[in-house]
């Protein structure tokens, strides 16, 4: 058993074609999860009746279980649920025609929502109470204060956390290969089994993930510098 270095490059060229699916599986759940995250964070901060218990349970459960469970439960559970509904209300949905990627996206979105809500919540809490009082003192409503004063600062401060979540979900999307998605890891697996060159294929996949991670961290670093410029002292 030796390592076929030239094959790594061949595998790389093949596997990188699957990058768009990996990016879809990363970005879509994060964007949708961001909306859930803001909603859940506000529900928890303002302790809205009943809702906040549900929100607490949701965040605790999704953060407390491996993401592979979310994918599997939704992958097996959703079609069952839809079939039942379809049967009862005669909707005529054929669950076997629903692309699997949709189930993966739903699962990852729910997971992303729970993680993002924690980040947004701690971001909001970290903005000092005085900012809220100052907003009230000039005559803003609670909504205006949240929207114009608190959230912009909370989100800017959370950029490093958002980057971590982005990288985390980029990596987590590799789990989707277990439900036969042809994203980067899935493609690597295919290249590996077809050519019986496992190590080379996974090295190539590793390089792709590594490269994207470094790129994202670099962009985030620049973005953070720009967005939190207001926080640095010193007269410019």
């Amino acid at each position: 058993m030796t390592i076929d270095i030239p094959f790594i490059w061949i595998a790389f060229k093949e596997i990188i074609k699957a990058l768009p699916i990996t990016l879809i599986l990363t970005i879509v759940p994060l964007l949708a999860g961001f909306l859930i995250g803001i909603g859940v964070a506000l529900v928890r901060i303002y302790k809205m009746k009943f809702l906040y218990r549900i929100a607490n349970g949701y965040v605790s459960f999704f953060r407390g279980t491996p993401i592979i469970m979310h994918i599997m439960v939704i992958y097996f559970g959703f079609p069952l649920l839809l079939d039942q509904l379809s049967l009862r209300f005669d909707l005529g949905i054929q669950t076997n025609k629903i692309p699997i990627i949709l189930f993966v996206l739903i699962a990852l979105t729910l997971a992303a929502g729970s993680y993002l809500s924690e980040i947004i919540r701690s971001g909001i809490i970290s903005v000092s109470n005085g900012q809220m009082e100052a907003a009230y003192s000039v005559g803003m409503t609670k909504f205006q204060a949240m929207n114009r004063i608190i959230l912009p600062q909370a989100l800017a401060q959370s950029i490093p956390n958002f980057t971590n979540i982005f990288v985390g979900f980029l990596h987590t999307s590799s789990i989707a290969f277990l439900v036969s998605q042809k994203e980067v890891t899935g493609a690597a697996n295919i290249v590996a089994s077809v050519n019986l060159k496992f190590l080379e294929a996974f090295i190539a996949a590793g390089i792709i993930y590594w490269g994207i991670t470094i790129l994202v961290e670099g962009i985030s670093f620049l973005l953070e510098k720009k967005v939190t410029a207001y926080n640095r002292g010193g007269v410019s």
Partner: peptide
């Protein structure tokens, strides 16, 4: 306020404008 409580993410002139735009 005792601790000023200026809006940290807004410039000096934006701080003053904020109440005028939103509340007034």
């Amino acid at each position: 306020f005792q601790h000023y409580n200026l809006f940290a993410h807004k410039t000096v002139v934006e701080n003053v404008m904020e109440g005028l735009i939103v509340a007034k």
